[in-house]
Simulated assay, not measured.
Amino acid sequence: MQNYIEESHAVAGEPAGAEPGAARRALVLINPNSRRGAEAVDEVSRRLEAGGLALQVETFTSPEEVSSDIVRRAPEVDCVVVCGGDGSVNAAGPGLLETRLPFGIVPLGTGNDLARTLGIPEDLGAAIDIITAGKERTIDIGLVNGKPFFNVASLGISTDLAHTLTSDIKRRFGRLGYALAAMKVLTHARPFTATIMSKGEPMRVKTYQIAVGNGRYYGGGMAVAEHATIDDHHLDLYSLELSSVWKFALMLRAFRAGSHGAWEEVRTVRCTEFEIHTRKPRPVNCDGEICAHTPAKFQVVPKALRVFAP
């Protein structure tokens, strides 16, 4: 794994780019298994070309393909366009970090939380207009045990939710699928003990969930913290320390607003690095996909990537 922390502060070599006056060359990666992916392939290509981009279009069916395609095609393109949901963008993270190509998002998934954080609309035409306009924004990225995440990395309830919320449920029920899967997960949820290290100080907690956010939104519109942004160079952690997991239902409105830190059962911490240790290895969910296990080290990489955004 490359040292993204050290490299993030150096100005990466700009891509050679197209000749003056030529169209920008874009690698377009489409997840046909995303909620709207298969039906959108032709329209996405047509609109991007109409906006002046020269395209290399590839579909993918596994996360491993995404980053390898970006690295392989990097000398031939000036930017990357990821068409899919948060899982698709997460899969592109390692390749984007290695090549430092600017990227755009066409949100075709269920949650589309990174797009929401960046102010990218779900309307296909409006999202593509942002990419063709070419205005860039620099954002941070999070790492957990060296694996990148854009939105939130978490353990506890969310990992069970990631297993339960299948692609079929997402396609059939859309965002309602989150609620259906969550009800099933909460029925069987049990607390676990963990030690959170922040600024060298240990905190031993009994919790149902620990989440570490780089961006603002996750889980189909939940806010990790009230004032979190994806370019504030910090991570926001919360730990859900409830006497009964069903009290979480009373907190839903606060979680959507990011004001859950006002509840005494929710521990919140803001820092640039965290470590989480558990008695037995527990899986860590990154942007909806299991990507690591405890013990887990979380870091923020400031100004890591350039994205086309309002």
Rank of each mutant, 00 (worst) to 15 (best):
G84Q: 11
A254N: 14
N214G: 10
L97Y: 01
V300I: 09
N214W: 04
I230W: 00
D168F: 07
T193N: 13
S154C: 08
M183I: 08
P15M: 10
F248G: 09
I105W: 02
V284E: 03
D168Y: 06
V57P: 03
A153S: 14
Y238E: 02
T110A: 14
A92R: 07
G119M: 05
V11N: 12
R270G: 02
E122P: 01
A22P: 02
E226V: 03
E7Y: 06
L27V: 08
S244D: 15
V269N: 06
V307G: 08
R116W: 00
R100K: 09
P94A: 07
V245N: 11
F150Q: 14
G213V: 01
G134H: 04
A228N: 06
V80W: 06
L118N: 06
R270C: 08
G134A: 06
V224C: 09
E6A: 15
D231R: 14
F192I: 05
R100D: 00
L161R: 02
G37E: 07
R73A: 14
T278Q: 12
T195A: 12
H234D: 11
P202I: 03
S243Y: 05
Y178S: 10
C271P: 00
V152H: 03
A153M: 12
P63T: 01
C286W: 02
A181M: 13
C79D: 07
L305D: 00
P20C: 05
G200N: 14
A40C: 09
Y178T: 04
V245K: 14
A153F: 06
N285G: 09
L250R: 15
A38W: 04
V144H: 03
A92Q: 04
T117L: 07
A189E: 08
L101V: 03
A153N: 08
I130V: 09
A189Y: 02
G146A: 12
R36L: 12
A228V: 00
L186P: 01
K297Y: 01
A228Y: 00
I139K: 13
G219N: 11
I141W: 00
G221F: 03
R279Q: 14
C291G: 03
S62D: 13
V185P: 04
M222R: 07
G111F: 00
H9W: 08
G288A: 10
I276D: 11
P191F: 00
P32K: 13
L242V: 01
A10E: 11
E226L: 13
V81M: 14
R253N: 13
R270T: 05
S154M: 08
G51Y: 05
I130M: 14
I70M: 10
A16K: 12
I196N: 07
C286N: 08
G17S: 04
G119T: 00
V144Q: 07
I120T: 01
K199G: 07
E226K: 13
F149W: 13
L186M: 14
H227I: 01
R267M: 15
G142E: 05
I230H: 05
G258F: 02
T207S: 12
L118A: 11
V301Q: 11
V82P: 04
V41E: 14
L108C: 11
V212M: 07
G156S: 10
M183H: 05
G125I: 04
P94N: 07
A50N: 12
I230F: 00
R190Q: 14
H188R: 15
E76C: 04
G111V: 00
F255W: 05
R175M: 13
